[in-house]
């Protein structure tokens, strides 16, 4: 898997390169600011996925996020995993707005769990959607959005938002895959989602959940 990386803190950048290369990933470019990132992503074909820090020089605000939205505008569905010290729902919404999948948004500290992190990167590269449990929890904390769902269905939707497959959800909740499939079908029906291929449907469910 070929990765374009953007991270301005040297220590973390070097650490990520080492981590990725020891897990069969090839870092084709490691940018340290917005300009070098724009150069690296000028031709998205050089990489299978981009791993971006939200805050990058020169202004240290949301350059990484804007670069992610921009590259996906040019190449719809180009897989992007965004890392940040903070996860904000408003940013998750912007990343997911094109409804294309292949989006990840995680807290930086999640790289600490190496296997899980590399797995998340692979799922994003494969067109999946991975949201940080903290974003999921923030949405979960509110009463409003999906009152029609049962607590169990909400739990399943939360894990779907984190990008888990039916098999992974079944393992997490200690139920059969068949039961999970039943829950997901109920969720799709209750949220009035049109019949579309499964992966994209899961993303749409997440979008509905975040109230787009």
């Amino acid at each position: 898997m070929r990765v374009v990386l953007a991270e301005d803190q040297t220590l973390l950048r070097e650490g990520l390169i080492r981590l990725l290369e020891s897990h069969d990933c090839q870092v084709v470019a490691a940018a340290e600011d917005a300009d070098s990132l724009a150069l690296a992503l000028a031709d998205p074909d050089v990489a299978d996925v981009a791993l971006l820090d939200v805050r990058l020089p020169p202004t240290g605000t949301d350059e990484g996020l804007r670069a992610a939205v921009e590259v996906r505008r040019r190449r719809p569905g180009f897989p992007v995993l965004v890392l940040s010290q903070y996860v904000e729902r408003i940013y998750a919404r912007e990343l997911l707005a094109d409804g294309q999948g292949g989006v990840g948004y995680l807290l930086k500290e999640r790289v600490g769990d190496v296997l899980e992190f590399v797995d998340a990167l692979r799922r994003v590269a494969g067109g999946g959607t991975v949201l940080d449990p903290e974003v999921v929890a923030a949405v979960m904390a509110r009463r409003r959005p999906v009152e029609r769902l049962t607590p169990r269905e909400r739990e399943v939707l939360g894990l779907m938002a984190e990008g888990r497959s039916n098999a992974a959800i079944a393992a997490e909740l200690v139920v059969t895959e068949k039961a999970v499939a039943k829950h997901t079908n109920n969720i799709f029906a209750k949220l009035d989602l049109p019949p579309v291929p499964d992966d994209n449907r899961r993303v749409l469910a997440v979008l509905a959940w975040l109230e787009f």
Partner: peptide
């Protein structure tokens, strides 16, 4: 708040409103 630093008042207020139970 980070969104306030990144985007200014309007976006930060929007981010705030997303966390409220009332629409």
């Amino acid at each position: 708040p980070p969104v306030l630093a990144d985007r200014g008042l309007r976006s930060a207020v929007e981010a705030l409103s997303l966390d409220l139970a009332v629409p």
